[in-house]
Design a protein around this nucleic acid. Structure first.
Lengths: 325, 325
DNA sequence: TATGAATGTGAAATCGATTACAGTTTCGCA
DNA sequence: TGCGAAACTGTAATCGATTTCACATTCATA
């Protein structure tokens, strides 16, 4: 059904139908006739025609690159909620880490005339952002720092620093840190640096600290710690860059202590506050981020940009909570 | 930049530009001039204009109702991958369980002329689907059965039945089943029925079986089992409708055995094969579903419907794997 | 050389909704 | 009664891409 068909059925002009939907002078009588005609035909207006005409869609594109599991999908929730409340729509693309998948998604968003775009990812920011600059479409980056761009991210450094400080390490402690893989360097290096800085402040000498590289997943954490134990196994603390890896570490430790049972169990810490891990292995020290809040902040920033009230580049850093320590 | 501007710059008609993009007779010379003009202007064609003209978008809408955490988000991955390979785009809406949120998303998809829609949810199928019928937009339901509709779902009954059978219960066993809450009845009741049927086959008399209601989350599982223990605590098996609840159950059991330490530990089973749970508390019996495969099957079904090769209603039931038993 | 097929090209209609504009009617108030 | 403002209404242009149509050119083959 189209505008015109509804108009005909109601005995009015298509302008009247449009005014019925969008507001404008319209007599009560026609209003009723149009409402009836719409009801009867099940008319659904074409967003494409409207967007074409208005040159704006009141829709924000969200590209969620799931390079690090679904952790960040909570951000999308907060984003959509806020945007919707502010009168905008949201269009989400959930892209894998396939080569070029994010570019395709960005292209396709632009073609559909989104008014703004939010990139949620811990993967490197794609260099293709100039697409949006040319089209003067505001961009907000979530999850990492990007020079000269609007971004919202968590204070991974500070969180790791505080976590390390709160573990209760001393100058006699032997500590292993299981770093996230290269693919996750955006937050990974912040966490590692923060953690090491925290250890230094706690007085742990650097020759009693071992840094190994894991990945992100449970399995990767498991194998990394297995390998670690091949050399020595008298660690007091094994801290991981993610809760998943911490779970893998716990598994490795359990197997280790089962076969040798000689040293005291190392204490494990993670990052992310996974409820299952906390319930089954807890309390273990970890860090909680408020993903939904992150989404809301990003949405606020985007709405400000869309309203043109703000032009300057903003970089917002969100807090954290150290739990289970 | 528009079609026409590019055409002017290249010294051709707008028809030529369109032919450059979509194929058609075009001399090599103009081809080059147009390519240069596009490159120079950074021209991005308007999908809205194209969709308006063609009355189709080659895009499938996906509505993911996250009533049960992110479990089903893996399905979206498989869907998008397959659809993209088949030449379609995907547009995802990630809606909460707010009143009417799913309806809004469905409306908005229709307005944007999606060619088909996939609903991923374990919540009740919304009654608003007639919207799509009127518009002759094919619908595929993922995650549950729906009469007279195309759907793809997991064999929750069979999985629960096999899981129950594989636990090693005997006629002397005392078994508790922690059911999912009412909100999750779509898969919840299948799992419960299947589980009970499996127990019956294993010869467990029904007066040694207790069914209680949890919810979905870790906390809900924890409190449900706490409450269960208030009455008696000599269960041999505590089986939960989800892995999250199983984690909660394990926490409750640990607290219980710490304070009383008199009975043998009940054995816990879950549903979903959460990697963290398995690493930290495993092996515990659970069921693995292949979410990505589910997405692929749903996409296949949708593509068949879109190509008009299939008109009949199909109901596909996917298999499972019992692990950790 | 003739002749139909294949190739190349642009003008113009079209998709559906919005809105500027011009026109009509109604209303309040002097 | 008069007169400006407010309320109401429809016509037609517009957004940008696609495609039919009519026509022109080249090509292959009889």
């Amino acid at each position: 059904m189209t505008n015109k068909e509804v108009a005909e059925l109601a005995g009015v002009s298509s302008a009247a139908v449009s005014r019925f939907l969008n507001g404008g002078y319209l007599s009560e009588e026609k209003r009723e006739r149009i409402a009836a005609a719409i009801e009867q035909t099940g008319y659904v207006p074409s967003a494409n025609a409207r967007i074409l005409r208005l040159k704006k869609s009141d829709t924000v594109g969200i590209i969620l690159t799931k390079s690090d599991e679904s952790t960040l999908s909570g951000v999308a929730t907060g984003l959509e909620k806020y945007l919707f409340a502010a009168g905008y729509g949201a269009s989400l693309a959930y892209v894998g880490d396939d080569e070029g998948a994010d570019f395709n998604a960005m292209r396709s968003m632009l073609e559909r005339q989104i008014d703004g775009i939010v990139l949620i990812s811990s993967a490197p920011v794609p260099g293709d952002l100039e697409l949006f600059e040319r089209a003067r479409v505001p961009v907000v980056i979530v999850g990492q720092h990007a020079r000269n761009r609007n971004c919202v991210r968590f204070d991974n450094f500070g969180a790791a620093y505080d976590l390390a400080s709160s573990l209760g390490c001393t100058m006699e402690s032997r500590v292993a840190y299981v770093d996230a893989g290269k693919r996750y360097r955006s937050f990974g290096s912040d966490r590692r640096k923060g953690f090491l800085a925290g250890l230094e402040r706690a007085g742990v000498p650097s020759d009693r600290i071992t840094v190994i590289t894991g990945g992100f997943s449970v399995d990767e954490g498991y194998y990394a710690v297995k390998k670690l134990f091949a050399t020595r196994n008298d660690y007091d603390f094994i801290s991981c860059a993610t809760d998943s890896m911490a779970a893998g570490a716990i598994k490795a430790i359990r197997e280790q202590s089962g076969s040798i049972r000689r040293h005291k169990q190392p204490r494990v810490s993670g990052f992310g506050n996974d409820p299952i891990l906390q319930a089954v292995a807890g309390p273990i020290p970890t860090v909680r981020f408020d993903y939904e809040e992150c989404g809301i902040k990003a949405a606020e920033m985007m709405v400000d940009l869309l309203k043109g009230e703000v032009k300057s580049v903003a970089s917002m850093v969100l807090g954290y909570e150290v739990v289970g320590a």
